[in-house]
Amino acid sequence: MKGHILLLGVSMLAACTSVTGINSRQDGHLTVTSRARWDLVSWNRVRSAGVSEAQSYCRKQQKQMHAVAVHSTGVRGMTTQTVEVIFDCI
């Protein structure tokens, strides 16, 4: 029973954010953007979703993710929170 509740909780957290695919920038870096789907999602959760996606992308290439910059917009409860992670796989 506890396992089902934990799985449901993790699924709910994953449903709180959306993450774009990995894109290349003209300066050679990679970027991924994550957005809150609900107004009550914390900035930290939105940032973590983007960073996790970047780490997963680099891990598939057997490299490590190096964050170059993290930009955020939006205010919790007022506007949609968006976080852009700019990174390299090294």
Rank of each mutant, 00 (worst) to 15 (best):
R76G: 03
A14S: 10
C16K: 15
N23C: 02
A36L: 05
A69F: 01
V85M: 00
R25P: 00
S18V: 14
K2I: 13
C58S: 11
T73W: 11
E84C: 02
V75Q: 03
G9H: 10
N23I: 08
I5Y: 11
K2G: 14
G21Q: 06
A67F: 04
V68C: 05
S56F: 10
R37G: 04
D39M: 11
C89M: 06
D88M: 06
R25S: 04
V46S: 03
S24N: 11
L13S: 08
V32F: 02
L6P: 09
H71P: 01
M12H: 11
G3S: 12
W38L: 04
G21C: 01
V68R: 01
G9R: 11
D27I: 08
N23Q: 07
E84T: 09
E84A: 00
T80W: 03
K60T: 15
R59S: 07
L8W: 13
L8N: 10
W38N: 13
S72Y: 01
R37N: 13
I22E: 09
L30F: 12
S24Q: 12
W38M: 09
L6M: 07
S52P: 14
T80V: 12
L7K: 15
V41L: 08
T31R: 00
L13I: 15
I5G: 06
V41M: 05
T17S: 11
T79W: 06
V19L: 00
T33H: 02
D88L: 05
G21E: 09
R59Y: 10
